[in-house]
C-alpha cells in the first residue's frame, strides 16, 4: 500500500512495541499460572463463534434477499414459459405452473413468426452460430498476433497505432456505424454474414489486443531471447512458444468474445438483413411484434433460449469469466 492513513499510525506503532516486548498481550495472559486468576479470567482460548450471531443474520439475510431478487427474473421467465396461456391470464406470474407444458418451447424454437418467416428462433440460432464461430476465431487470431507483435517485436510507430486503437475503444459505436456501412458496401459485403464477422473482429480488436499484449509482455523475455538465438523467427516463436504458454488467456478471450458477440444486437441489426438476423434481433422482433395475440409463454421461452448460450458459458467458466470481465473493465 502506498501511504498509511494518518489515523492508523498510532496503532501500528503500538503493535510494533507489543511485538518487541515479547508477543501478544493475550498470549502473556494465558501464561499466568495462578488458578484464581484463571477462574476470574473465564475460559481460556478463543471465544467460540456463534452461528446465529446478529452480524451473521444481517450479512447472510441481506445477501439471501438480494440473491432472491437477482434470481427473480430468471424464475419468472422459467415458470411463465412452462404455463399455458389460459393459466397465465388468470394466474400470478410468480406462482409455479399447475400444469407443466413444453409446447411454448417447441413453438418458440420452431414455429414463432417474425415478418414472413415462421420457422421460429431456430433460424436466428443458426445465424448466430454462423456469425459466432468465424468471428471468435478471426478476432482472436488477429488480436493475439497483434498483441504478440506489440509485446515482443516492437517496430517504429507500433505504439502510436496501439494508442489509437485503445482510444478508439471509447468512441461510441454510433459514430463509426455509417462509415463501416460504406466500406462494406464498397467491397460488396454489406448485408452479409461475412461483413458482420469483419465488424465484430474490428470492434473486438482493442480489448483483445490489450489483453494479449499484456499477457505476452509478462512471459519471461529469456525464453523469447533464447528462441531468437536458436534462430526461430516471428511465426515459429509465436506457434511454438507463445501460444502453448498462453492457453489460459486464449480461453479468457474466447469467453469474452462468445458472450459479447452472442449478445450483440446493434451490429446484427445494422449489418445484416432480415433472413440473416442473429438470435437477439430475431428474439426482439418476435416478442415486440405488434401483430397477433401476445403469447407470453412463447415469448419467455424464446427469451430463455436466447440467454442459454451465454448463461452456459458463464456457469461453466466460473472464475475465468470474472477474469475476462476484469480485463474488459480496463477497456472501459
Amino acid at each position: 500500500m502506498t501511504k498509511t492513513p494518518h489515523l492508523l499510525k498510532n496503532s501500528l506503532k503500538y503493535r510494533a512495541e507489543a511485538g518487541a516486548a515479547g508477543g501478544d498481550v493475550s498470549l502473556r495472559l494465558a501464561e499466568v499460572p495462578s488458578e484464581a486468576a484463571r477462574v476470574e479470567n473465564g475460559p481460556a482460548g478463543r471465544k467460540p463463534r456463534k452461528v446465529l450471531s446478529r452480524r451473521n443474520i444481517i450479512v447472510y439475510g441481506t445477501l439471501i434477499v438480494v440473491c432472491l431478487y437477482y434470481l427473480l427474473p430468471l424464475y419468472v421467465m422459467i415458470v411463465t414459459s412452462l404455463k399455458g396461456m389460459p393459466e397465465i391470464r388468470i394466474g400470478n406470474i410468480f406462482s409455479p405452473p399447475l400444469e407443466v407444458t413444453f409446447q411454448p418451447w417447441v413453438k418458440a424454437w420452431a414455429e414463432a413468426c417474425t415478418g414472413l418467416n415462421c420457422d421460429g428462433l431456430s433460424r436466428g440460432f443458426f445465424n448466430s452460430v454462423r456469425i459466432l464461430i468465424p468471428s471468435v476465431i478471426l478476432s482472436i487470431v488477429i488480436a493475439s498476433v497483434n498483441g504478440y507483435a506489440l509485446a515482443n517485436w516492437r517496430f517504429k510507430g507500433a505504439d502510436t497505432f496501439f494508442t489509437i486503437l485503445i482510444v478508439g475503444a471509447f468512441i461510441p459505436y454510433q459514430v463509426m456505424l455509417y462509415p463501416l456501412v460504406i466500406m462494406l458496401r464498397e467491397i460488396g459485403l454489406y448485408g452479409s454474414l461475412t461483413g458482420l464477422v469483419i465488424v465484430h473482429t474490428i470492434f473486438g480488436m482493442p480489448i483483445l489486443t490489450l489483453l494479449f499484449r499484456n499477457y505476452f509482455a509478462s512471459v519471461p523475455q529469456e525464453l523469447f531471447k533464447a528462441a531468437r538465438v536458436d534462430g526461430a523467427g516471428f511465426w515459429r516463436i509465436y506457434f511454438r512458444i507463445m501460444v502453448p504458454m498462453s492457453l489460459p488467456i486464449f480461453v479468457v478471450a474466447m469467453i469474452l468474445q462468445v458472450t459479447g458477440i452472442w449478445n450483440d444486437f446493434l451490429f446484427g441489426v445494422v449489418y445484416t438483413k432480415p433472413d440473416l438476423y442473429p438470435m437477439t434481433v430475431q428474439l426482439n422482433n418476435i416478442v415486440n411484434s405488434t401483430q397477433g395475440v401476445k403469447e407470453y409463454n412463447v415469448n419467455m421461452a424464446a427469451t430463455i433460449l436466447t440467454g442459454l448460450v451465454p448463461l452456459t458459458v458463464y456457469f461453466i467458466s466460473g472464475k475465468l469469466f470474472v477474469r475476462g470481465i476484469a480485463a474488459g473493465a480496463v477497456k472501459g
Binding site: P73, V76, N263, F265, T280, L283, V287, M300, V322
Partner: peptide
Amino acid sequence: LYPFALSFIVTGLAWQWI
C-alpha cells in the same frame, strides 16, 4: 453476476414482462 452474462435484449424483455 449472472445477469451480466445475459444480453440487454434478454434483460429488457424479462423486465418488460415483470
